[in-house]
């Protein structure tokens, strides 16, 4: 019964995540940018824009310019998250390739990075007057949700290990449209519920910053308005 509930939960969560984010991306992509508004100095070539975007999403360049504390916590959290996510690939494939085995320890200890980053970011929401002012309940809840995921994950790794092979079997089963038995480990269930919740709220929350940044005209436009005429389809209709 438990396995069936969680199987449905993950199918639904995945569907919402994929369809929801897909629809948002389609909306962003289809909405025209009527004017050239890159924040200058901006790259003058497409390659330059790719580089700028790369620096933005990999190094958080603008955030670094802005505030070293937010950068530190934010960057450590996000980069650790990637390592942890990569490590989790092992639960969805049968044969573990060499590089993934190599990543294993990094992925495990990165969880401390995630926790540290989240605690730092959350702390600022209480300690810095300006950030306290702009925080909504949802901002706190999002951090609570993420921290729940991280801490439950760490507990399972470092304190009370569940029957991880059964967990893997369960997810491999889901990929093959089969429902295997999921161990009824309370920490595991908390972890999985929180993850599914995160997937479900993704397309309706501020987590949209992830796809959003790629569509931000101040960052993704080429600075070439004198050389190349830029015209939105709706604006073209104004020209009789």
């Amino acid at each position: 019964m438990l396995s069936v509930i969680y199987a449905i939960l993950f199918y639904v969560a995945t569907a919402i995540l994929v369809v929801g984010v897909g629809m948002k991306i389609r909306k962003y992509a289809r909405t025209p940018a009527p004017l050239k508004i890159p924040t200058t100095p901006a790259p003058t070539t497409a390659w330059g824009v790719v580089l700028r975007m790369f620096r933005e999403v990999v190094f958080f360049e603008s955030l670094f310019k802005s505030n070293k504390w937010i950068w530190l916590f934010g960057w450590v959290f996000h980069m650790s998250m990637w390592l942890v996510l990569i490590r989790h690939i092992r639960y969805f494939i049968i044969e573990i390739p060499g590089w993934l085995s190599f990543m294993q320890p990094f992925g495990i200890y990165a969880s401390f990075g995630m926790a540290l980053g989240l605690i730092g970011l959350w702390g600022r929401r209480f300690l810095v007057e300006r950030i306290r002012y702009i925080s909504n309940p949802s901002d706190h809840l999002m951090l609570a949700l993420l921290l729940t995921i991280v801490i439950s994950g760490m507990l399972m790794r470092f304190v009370a290990r569940p029957d991880i092979l059964s967990v893997k079997a369960f997810f491999l089963g889901l990929l093959r449209l089969r429902i295997e038995t999921l161990p009824a480990d309370p920490i595991l269930l908390v972890h999985l519920t929180a993850v599914a919740t995160l997937m479900i709220v993704f397309p309706i929350s501020k987590l949209l910053h992830a796809p959003g940044v790629f569509f931000s005209p101040t960052r993704n436009q080429i600075d070439n308005p004198r050389e190349k005429r830029h015209l939105a389809p709706w604006a073209a209709k104004l020209e009789g």
Binding site: K27, T31, A33, S66, I70, I131, K206, G212, P217
Partner: peptide
Amino acid sequence: LAEKNRAFQVYLDACVKCGACTDK
């Protein structure tokens, strides 16, 4: 405006309230 201007649409969604702009 949300339909005609990508910046408006994306900026309404993307903010995470990180606070980086608060003192700018």
